[in-house]
Amino acid sequence: MLNAGLVFVLALFLQSVKSQDEKAFNMVNRSLYWKLKLNDPCTKNWEKNWFKDGLIAKVEQSDSGMNFIAGPKNRNDAHHGVLWSKESYKGDIKLEYYYTRTDSAVVNVNILYIQAQGIGTGPYDKDISKWNKLREVPEMGIYYNYMNPLHISLAAFPMVNEDPQNDYIRVRKYPISEGRKFSETEIPETAFKTGLFLPNVTYKITVIKTKTNLYFKIVGNKQSKLFSWKLKEGQSPEEGRIGLRHMFTRSARYKDFKIYTK
């Protein structure tokens, strides 16, 4: 067991790292070089800025925002859904939006895809809109084998789970290269049991991706938490679309979705 002195030193070290991350996030977040590229209230005409993978998933809009609802059948790939930005974004990118879980599920995952393109071979053109038909059933393997985005799992639960507190936040980088396993796409560290993303609670999310860092900040329900990951060479996408994925049974509402680049 760790003695009290070592625990104290470790706590100080972790606090110092957290403070440094906050300073770095605040500096890049407040940069005057960000240019607003999308400002979508998400309250009407969602098809102006987004298109959908999956024939069963649906979008319901109101003054409260854009409620994206995956199909109700668990373990049925046709019931996944993805919303994609119609525009593609290049370079450093910042996302700001309000997110509210509208499900009470304790299984399956929501995913934010950052700057997705196809791998550019066979039918998988870099412009993913050219192979929308291949994603009418949005089976996960199509995405992690044939696209190259960063992936953030949020409001995420294991596919077998009964504990409503057993959520996690995890980052991955696609695609799976030859000889690798899906688990090897993970960029450490995964955060477990975050206490975030409670049903029917609205959170403000800020995501910033640079060449070397990924930041994910969540504010709401009297909490503010920042998660960060160092990106190695090849892990920061250069250009692509933003995607919102809900696995079967999952739903959430989005509002005031902003995208900046610089």
Rank of each mutant, 00 (worst) to 15 (best):
Y143E: 11
T202N: 04
K58W: 10
I69T: 09
L154Y: 15
N76W: 06
S104D: 14
Q61E: 14
I93T: 07
M66K: 00
P41L: 05
G243F: 02
Y143H: 11
S183M: 14
R180Y: 13
D21H: 13
E22N: 13
S64F: 08
S183N: 14
E239P: 11
V201E: 15
W131T: 01
S31M: 03
I111V: 10
R30M: 12
M247I: 05
V109I: 11
I176L: 11
D125C: 09
D21T: 02
D63H: 04
W34A: 02
G240E: 07
F216K: 00
E189T: 08
Y143K: 01
N3Y: 10
G240V: 00
Q117W: 05
G179A: 06
Y168H: 09
R241M: 08
K230G: 10
L154G: 09
P164F: 05
R253Q: 15
W84I: 01
D125E: 08
A156F: 07
M247G: 09
L95C: 05
D167Y: 01
F248H: 15
D21F: 07
E139D: 10
Q223V: 10
Y99N: 05
H79R: 01
V7N: 12
I119L: 03
F157A: 04
N166L: 06
E189N: 15
P188L: 03
P158L: 13
A11M: 08
M247Q: 14
Q235D: 12
Y99G: 03
F248P: 09
E136G: 05
Y260A: 00
D167F: 00
L198Q: 15
M66S: 04
D167V: 00
I114D: 07
K126E: 11
M27G: 08
S31L: 04
R135V: 12
L198P: 00
Y89C: 06
F157K: 06
Q61P: 06
T261V: 11
S183F: 13
W131S: 00
K23D: 15
M1H: 12
G195S: 01
E60W: 00
V82G: 04
V7C: 10
S177L: 15
R253C: 15
K73N: 15
H79F: 06
W84Y: 11
P237W: 04
L32I: 10
A156W: 03
E96P: 00
E189G: 07
P123Y: 02
K181W: 13
V109C: 14
K211I: 04
I152Q: 02
M140P: 14
S251T: 08
N148R: 04
D63S: 08
N200R: 09
S19T: 10
K130L: 11
G141P: 10
N67P: 02
V28H: 05
G91W: 06
Y89V: 01
V201N: 12
I176V: 11
S104A: 08
I259P: 10
L10G: 12
R172Y: 09
F182A: 15
N161E: 13
A191M: 13
N108F: 10
V160F: 09
G120M: 01
